[in-house]
């Protein structure tokens, strides 16, 4: 299954050229400084940049999955829900894998406090695991435990899926499964948006920063841009009306002259 996250809303964007620079001003706010590293670190394999980039990429996918789960149609479509759950777990495993890999890399970023980074990595791991733990809210929220859906933690620390169990559970309790994963993915999105600061090794909560700086700026710039385009469109519509009026009058003039010319010839 493919989740068409990036294609949504992309129609026509390639047409932007002049307006790109304006949007560039707000493009990433705090994200950009975190995912972009100084050149001397850029070539490091297994670097913190790779970890942060992977986290960001997986979090973006998780957001799309979350939206799919919120969709009303999904509940009625068993196959979709199953695919979404599989995709969700796959993304979570992707996060865990990169964290585990980074935990074993003791030279993750030169000249940075490695202990702080390792502590941050452990915290990230805990955040993911606790977000997927529904035991505290099962009774209150009428949710299912992930193990009863067929999702279990494996020895390697990753999550495994029992396809038969998940199919059966979805066919019998589809709404509850959707609700459970909606809660889990929301919890993960709310708590997980962290990156590791390459300078300090500490976790950084960039979602808030993006929301505070980026979204507001983006909406302001988008709003201004949209307003300008609307004004331009109105002007063009006026110009079009005038052009059509001129065309009509010119055509009528030619017609009159032709009639006049025919009359002259007849006489």
């Amino acid at each position: 299954m493919r989740v068409h996250g990036d294609s949504k809303g992309c129609q026509g964007t390639v047409l932007f050229s002049q307006d790109r620079k304006i949007l560039n001003q707000v493009k990433t706010s705090g994200v950009h400084e975190i995912i972009s590293y100084p050149n001397d670190h850029a070539s490091q394999e297994n670097s913190l940049q790779a970890v942060n980039n992977t986290i960001l990429r997986h979090m973006q996918s998780l957001e799309i999955v979350c939206k799919e789960l919120v969709s009303g149609e999904l509940i009625q479509k068993t196959n979709n829900l199953e695919n979404i759950v599989v995709l969700f777990i796959d993304k979570v495993n992707g996060l865990l894998r990169i964290i585990n890999k980074a935990k074993n890399d003791h030279t993750i970023v030169p000249n940075t406090d490695n202990d702080t980074i390792q502590r941050s990595l452990r915290m990230l791991n805990e955040i993911i695991i606790s977000a997927l733990d529904t035991s505290d809210v099962i009774e209150e929220e009428d949710l299912l435990h992930l193990s009863s859906i067929g999702v279990k933690r494996m020895k390697d620390g990753l999550f495994g899926i029992d396809n038969e169990v998940i199919k059966e559970t979805i066919s019998s309790n589809g709404k509850e499964v959707a609700k459970t994963f909606k809660m889990v993915s929301s919890a993960l999105l709310e708590t997980m948006p962290f990156c590791i600061d390459p300078n300090t090794g500490n976790l950084r909560y960039i979602r808030k920063k993006l929301k505070e700086d980026g979204d507001d700026s983006t909406s302001r710039v988008s709003g201004a841009l949209s307003e300008r385009l609307e004004r331009e469109k109105i002007e063009l519509m006026k110009k079009l009306n005038i052009t059509e009026l001129l065309i009509s009058r010119s055509g009528q003039f030619i017609e009159n002259l032709e009639i006049s010319s025919e009359l002259c010839t007849d006489v």
Partner: peptide, 18 residues
């Protein structure tokens, strides 16, 4: 088209999706 694209655009976390 530009107006429609702008209406469809929103800065999504973690990376703007467009």
């Amino acid at each position: 088209r530009h107006i429609n694209s702008l209406k469809a655009y929103s800065a999504k976390f973690p990376i703007p999706s467009m």
